[in-house]
Nucleic acid binder design. Sequence first.
RNA 1: GGAGGAGUGGCAGAGCUGGUUGAAUGCACCGGUCUUGAAAACCGGCGUGCGAGAAAUCGUACCGGGGGUUCGAAUCCCUCCUCCUCCGCCA
Length: 426
Amino acid sequence: MLVLSFIREHQDRVIAGLKTRNYPDEELAIVDRIIALDDQRKATQKQLDDLLAEGKQLSKQIGALYKSGQRAEGDQLKAKVAEAKAASGQLQEQLQSVKAELEQTLLALPNVAHPSVPAGNTDEDNEVYQDWTEAFPELPASALPHWELAKKYQIFDLELGTKLTGSGFPLYRGKGAKLQRALINFFLDEAHAAGYEEIIPPHLVNADSARGTGQLPDKEGQMYHVTLDELYLIPTAEVPITNMYRGDILAEGDFPIKLCGYTPCFRREAGSYGAHVRGLNRVHQFDKVEIVQIEHPDRSYDTLQAMLQHVEGLLQKLELPYRILRLCGGDLGHTSALTFDFEVYSLAQKRWLEVSSVSNFETYQSNRMKLRYRGADKKTHLAHTLNGSALALARIMASLLENHQTPEGIRIPAALQAYTRFELLN
RNA sequence: GGAGGAGUGGCAGAGCUGGUUGAAUGCACCGGUCUUGAAAACCGGCGUGCGAGAAAUCGUACCGGGGGUUCGAAUCCCUCCUCCUCCGCCA
């Protein structure tokens, strides 16, 4: 959610940001509508406050009159208060409905795209920011996609997952389960070495948390919803971890707050079927280590760079060829100002797989969750929030299997061997 | 799951037989006096949001959340949430 005063002062930037996101001209009026609603809100608030002040004064007078035994005079004043009360009740309703509409409109307004965000509509328009292809493997013509390798080496079983739960819930077994666990520990240790505190958060969150990071209302249908208890299964550790600071006022010295956490992630992924989602390419439950930072606004873009480097280091140690994309306006998430996606090339599938998304949300999330800090000026300001996958397991597993396959089995990269305790998965 | 108790400012803790209490007091914190410096002592300040104002400041809302009673509620009523104690169940 954008800050109202920012929208008022920088309408041009807000509109430019919408254009980067390919908003049609007729929808740009949303900015004017928001300002009009806010004007209305302010005027109503003023009227209401004045009326309440009047009623409050009268009530005090009545109290004083009663105390001094002038009951009759006090009772006379009651009629006047009743009038003011009726009027204020109406205003209160007005105010509430204006606020509700304003809130709803404001939620519909996406974050202002960073100036570096390229124009474009689809993922085809994303800009290749950087790539690392040293690790491109030479694969024999007989190279198999990961779902075939999984069968060959008993790494994971999708049919069993379907039997137990439904499609898209993989079951890992044997060395596959060990590899999964090794990757999680490797990622956590790397994050720890980079100064991130490890968190094990709850895997279900309440609606306030889901709203804080922007899953509600924007992505309501994408989360699993436990209606009996009004809870949501987390789609990413970003949700509980960032919300740890919801409503807090930090000191400037608290920055940077660096947190990481492993959790399973649950996503309904409604409506996505077909060849491109085979195997582990898109599943309803996958494991991920997430890194989250809460930063001073002056430093958040440096921090974003540092997070990119961290993720790069992981992929290099796993010896996987990757590229970094700067998402274009059309592909940029609603809440993000700037996002870099990491994709790993899978030779066996002959396609890039998204394995990480690193974003700066600036104040968009912190405004929703009222995450502030006290500046040198003693006033409160919104902090910046950032997060990134470091890394998402299912697709890393897929590309690891495919890119490191040999006739003898799957070669485990050196950095990972200390965790798997085996060099070859066969 | 059952019975009882409780949720007040950064913390501790009054108020809870309704009336100028945004809220005593202590601690913490910030500024000042004193001091070579520090401590102590003393003086002053010290919540958040919204609105009005150039500003000083003023208005308004907030004492777990929501609703109600009343001219007026931190104080009374309803409801939900959370915590504590006891009982039950249990990895």
